[in-house]
């Protein structure tokens, strides 16, 4: 079945090419975490939790490195795809190389916007657990992680948002669902600093011609802009609603 209806020009879920899915957030869902958010982007659901900044303990990893050479950012990220999140229950045991890769991407992104010297000798742990997978997992995890960091009150310079885009017949589709993901089309995920539009990570899937890169990137950036607008409004709303009870 085609991704875009020739009749209406709409995608299978009724969106236009450059339209993103609905975004919903519930803050503070995990009581024991310092910050948490249940982030929904269409049918993709992610539970992002932040623990810390808490004591990093002694540097006893025994690798013989000087403390100075150790990663000073004190950031640990984890991306997890739940076994029950997809249509077929994932039964394979052991490591998921993609999850490790995604964790790495998250770390790269948040490192850029955090203030490492303010968290010296302490560690911040960000975990994104995909509860329901419907495409754009990495992109949604990047956005969800930022929101959890904000909820935890950890200082960041700007928000990180992610967006996954594909291209078909010269038409770029932003924020793709799992059905669109399965088509072996060119696929690009970007993690960008929201306001400056600076791309921190870019993940490409499937082979495609270099001429397609520019339109697909442009669409990704436009898509992340839209996601940022949504997320920004949600965060403002959340702060405003909690602010009245604020005592200073």
């Amino acid at each position: 079945m085609e991704l875009i209806s020739p009749l209406t020009g709409l995608r299978r879920d009724g969106r236009r090419e450059d339209e993103i899915r609905d975004i919903k957030c519930h803050f503070g869902v995990a009581k024991d975490a310092d910050g948490s958010v249940l982030f929904e982007q269409g049918n993709t659901k992610i539970l992002a939790t932040v623990f810390g900044p808490s004591d990093a303990g002694e540097n006893d990893d025994d690798d013989g490195d000087l403390d100075l050479l150790e990663d000073p950012s004190g950031l640990e990220c984890e991306f997890k795809l739940s076994a029950f999140s997809q249509q077929d229950r994932r039964t394979g045991q052991g490591d998921d190389p993609r999850a490790d890769e995604y964790s790495e991407y998250m770390e790269m992104c948040y490192k850029v916007v955090m203030f490492p010297h303010k968290n010296e000798n302490s560690v911040v742990k960000v975990t994104c657990q995909v509860l329901q997978a419907d495409g754009s997992h990495l992109a949604a995890a990047l956005t969800a992680g930022t929101l959890a960091l904000i909820d935890a009150g950890i200082q960041i310079k700007d928000l990180i948002v992610g967006c996954t885009t594909t291209i078909i017949d010269g038409k770029a589709l932003v924020d793709i669902s799992s059905h669109e993901e399965l088509q072996r089309l060119p696929q690009v995920t970007v993690g960008v600093i929201a306001r400056s539009g600076e791309i921190i990570v870019m993940d490409m899937k499937n082979r495609f011609h270099k001429d397609l890169l520019n339109p697909i990137l442009a669409a990704s950036l436009a898509g992340s802009g839209k996601i940022f607008e949504e997320v920004e409004a949600i965060v403002r709303e959340h702060v405003k609603n909690s602010a009245p009870n604020f005592t200073t």
Partner: peptide, 14 residues
């Protein structure tokens, strides 16, 4: 029954 925000300015990172 949240109280109306006093004219507080809300900021988000960035």
């Amino acid at each position: 029954g949240r109280r109306a925000p006093r004219n507080q300015e809300v900021f988000i990172p960035g």
